[in-house]
Amino acid sequence: MTATWIAMLPHLAHQAAFGALAAAGFGVLFNFGWRTLAWCAVAGALALAVRTVVQQTGGSLEAATFAAAFVTSFTAILALRWLGPACNAVALAGCIPMVPGAFFGQAMLGYMAVAADTTGSSTAQIVAASQAFVRVLSIVGAIGAGLAIPAYLLKSRQF
């Protein structure tokens, strides 16, 4: 068991590091201040680490995304003392690397290919594109629910 976890560490570190980079990069785009940007990176690393652990233990991508968003939101609210009212925004920035833009691209390109197909044998492509689209909906829903539920339960939705 321990050996499995140790073997997983390099992948976990990789995912957390690039989650942090993606969250901080988008934080700059969203004009977060320097101090808050550091917290965005921490939130991104936490989100990707949790998602990776849940996936490695057999969870689906959707379940892992929900768990990651939930833990990130919950932790950010607990860190309210340091983060201030921006805690919810920091949690959101941390979850940005999990937004399924690539799945949406796959779905749209798949549908475009189906539209251009003249052979009438595009059933597999329709299924693949539809599956990607359903994954977009479920992952975006998982992020939204994971972020919102702790905020509602812990009443951290101050102005």
């Binding site: 989650g19 980079l21 993606a22 969250a23 901080a24 990069g25 988008f26």
Partner: peptide, 13 residues
């Protein structure tokens, strides 16, 4: 920063 974020996304994908 946006470029770095996209490159990080690429690694995650």
């Amino acid at each position: 920063a946006t470029g770095a974020a996209c490159a990080a996304f690429g690694r995650l994908l």
